[in-house]
Each structure stands twice: as C-alpha cells, then as structure tokens.
C-alpha cells in the first residue's frame, strides 16, 4: 500500500502530559500573552505621552474587573516566562539536563512564579 494512504498514529491526542511538555507549552503560551502585554506597555507609554486625559482613560480601563484579571494573568505570565527562561538559559549553557534536575528546576519555576505573582499583588494592593 502506498505510504500516503496509511493512517497516521495519534500523537498529541494520546500522549501523556508530563512536566517537560506542559512547562514547554506554558512557556510558549505565556510568551504569546506577554506579546499582548508589550502592546499594553506601549499603549500605556503612548497615553502617558499624550497627556493626563488619555492616561486617565487607560487607567480607568485597567481598573475594571476585566482589566485587573488581565493584569493578574500578565503578572503570572511575566514571572513564569522569566523564571523558565532562566531555566532554559542554564540548559543552553549545557547545565541541568539530568532528569532529576529537570524536574526539580521545573517545580521550582512553577512555585517561584506563583509566589512572585502573589508578592507583587500583595505589594501593589498596599501602595
């Protein structure tokens, strides 16, 4: 039978989610979220340059529930991408490839980014 007619075996549909793949796709997702965050950062700078009225309008938008939720997601995305990015830089330097280290550093990244997100939000609510 020609090879093209053979059915393709399933991949993503059945492969077990593991810390390795889950953290990788999260890194990607947070990267995309942060691209939207970059858009907001530039919007924020532009509104600051445009004057107090434009700035106040953006601030009001960010103070809504939706705005705050987005900010929370961005905060986590930022810290996750930062921490896991450092984990990637260690790999690029040839370090941390032992399976035990891969898992230990992975859980550390998850824990640290959640903790940093919490700290940032507690600090910002106290200001």
């Amino acid at each position: 039978m020609p090879r093209a007619l053979r059915p393709l075996s399933p991949d993503l549909q059945i492969y077990r989610p593991q810390l390795t793949s889950v953290m990788s796709i999260t890194h990607r997702a947070t990267g995309v979220a942060l691209s939207a965050g970059a858009l907001l950062l530039v919007w924020w700078l532009a509104s600051a340059a445009a004057g107090p009225d434009a700035y106040a309008r953006l601030h009001a938008l960010l103070a809504t529930d939706l705005g705050l939720t987005a900010m929370l997601v961005w905060t986590f995305a930022l810290f996750y991408h930062l921490c896991n990015g450092i984990r990637h830089l260690f790999w690029d330097a040839g370090r941390g490839f032992g399976l035990r280290t891969i898992y230990a550093s992975g859980w550390t990244v998850f824990g640290t980014s959640i903790a940093l997100t919490a700290i940032a939000w507690i600090l910002s609510s106290k200001v």
Binding site: L8, P10, L12, Q13, R16, Q18, L99, Y103
Partner: peptide, 27 residues
C-alpha cells in the same frame, strides 16, 4: 513527583492526556 529516572512513573496523574478531542486534527 520528582522524577529521577525515565523508568519512574508519576505517583499522581492529574491528566492522562491533553484536553483535546480524541481525534483532534487527525486525517
């Protein structure tokens, strides 16, 4: 679960597979 070697199975399974339809994107 701290995996130390590839033969080790996780103690707890949160997800047996990714949350996509069983025949997702299959020809």
């Amino acid at each position: 679960t701290l995996i130390r070697s590839s033969e080790q199975q996780p103690r707890v399974t949160l997800l047996r597979r990714f949350p996509v339809p069983r025949n997702f994107a299959l020809p």
